[in-house]
Design a protein around this nucleic acid. Structure first.
Lengths: 254, 254
DNA sequence: CTGCCGGATATAACATGCGATATAGTAAGT
DNA sequence: ACTTACTATATCGCATGTTATATCCGGCAG
């Protein structure tokens, strides 16, 4: 996977202009970010022309970016019918978190022995930022990123790039639902406490307990998210057939 | 006419969507197959123009197919410099099989309760074909496919598409090295015996033993492949050119 | 003789245009 | 009035042409 991990947030502001480097990559990053933040809601169909004109590029980079995202599992491309952001079923959520619960403890196990003090303080800083952001409800989308940052720091010393690529993709696929978890504030609180506990166990190099707690942590997060999703779907069932306007910040066309 | 839409020979019944093939998909399948069979050797650089003229298509489908394969982890695209088939290090092999050893038993556990008699007989047939093919050394490339067929049949009832997608990709990434395992004939024999044992355990619905044996089976296969690869690399160290048997029809610059 | 710089060439990245295909809307027939 | 078939439009897919960038080679200077 040719993801450019080095430079992530350099072009966050510009809406239409794409900076240098590969246009395809830039468009893919942009769309991925928008999907993960929920700005492109589930079920939305991504039309190549609209995206191309929006980003001031031709349709070729857009097409390739869409194919990239399709391979990452973020969208689905159907022949001659465009790409859509699939709505994840509770079963999908369960499966995603099962994969996480399986892979991430294994990577953590390999990483813990090589974690440095700098890693720990960095993770600590992320957790503090996390607490700060929790106070502002409007920063929901930041939570998912901070969550991933914390986890990925802990895994960073495992030196298992393929594991990490898979884990990253799986996390991305579900991240656009993290805003749902805001509804269960106690769930977030619990997650935060577990994060601190996990970090402490890693500091003490208690590998097995840390991995076990991590597995439980992921499992619980998946369960609560699954339930939140089921509630949301049940609530959306009663409403109109077309009016899912609660996430009305969709950009696909204007 | 090098490219035929109509012939969709592969695809075991695991895929949900079996839509019409686009040129991009066809090219991607072709290239993926060639890479997995080893017809495109490691280190070869895939030039878009050459592939396009070879398959009688334009460069656009080729580009998109390459990007697809890149996202699958089969090749690496470097900006403005084309795509290459990466040479996997022994550590890569180890990581790939670690992932398999982690994911596949979990899927098998979920699948076993729902396996039918038809599944068992189908798997049995694959194993018999496998034994047949082993006698002909020239059919090495068939072994990888049969191996995957057998495994995927056992997992097919788990109904975990994302697990399966990951497992499939991980298997694909390493499959072009299965020919190396031919060198250790006893390893193949052992693999065959283990396959039969696993199948028997699945028949008796002995979930835990089956999963445990599967894990060991994958682990052993990875270890032996890793050792074979190390031997090959050590041998290739002396002679800069190693004669790969069949790559006469490939766009490799020389 | 060697190392650096600049142009030529090859190759990938991107844009535009055209043909193909699916969906929707309308009209006609039962 | 309902269903079906046909047409029109919007969108995707592929081809060809153009631009940008990296590599390679040769000349010039030190």
């Amino acid at each position: 996977m040719t993801l450019d991990y080095t430079q992530m947030d350099q072009e966050t502001a510009s809406d239409t202009a794409i900076p240098r480097r590969s246009l395809t990559m830039a468009v893919a990053d942009r769309l991925r970010d928008q999907i993960m933040r929920g700005e492109i809601p589930e079920g939305a169909q991504l039309r190549q022309d609209a995206i191309a004109t929006q980003y001031q590029v031709s349709r070729i980079p857009v097409r390739e970016a869409l194919r990239q995202l399709d391979a990452e599992g973020l969208i689905e491309i159907v022949h001659n019918r465009g790409a859509i952001v699939p709505a994840l079923s509770p079963e999908d959520i369960e499966e995603l978190f099962s994969i996480r619960a399986l892979l991430e403890p294994e990577v953590l196990k390999l990483s813990i022995p090589h974690l440095t003090k700098e890693d720990f303080s960095e993770a600590e800083a992320v957790l503090q930022t996390y607490v700060q952001e929790l106070k502002h409800e409007e920063h929901v989308s930041a939570w998912g990123r901070l969550n991933w940052q914390f986890h990925s720091i802990l895994y960073s010393r495992a030196n298992q790039p393929r594991f990490m690529a898979i884990i990253r993709n799986v996390n991305n696929s579900g991240e656009r639902y993290t805003r749902l978890q805001l509804y269960l504030t106690h769930g977030m609180k619990r997650a935060n406490e577990e994060h601190h506990q996990i970090l402490e166990l890693c500091r003490n190099r208690e590998i097995a307990p840390a991995c076990k707690l991590l597995r439980q942590h992921i499992h619980f997060a998946g369960e609560s998210l699954k339930q939140a999703l089921e509630r949301k779907r049940a609530a959306a069932q009663g409403e109109s057939a077309q009016g899912d306007s609660k996430n009305g910040d969709q950009p696909s066309k204007s």
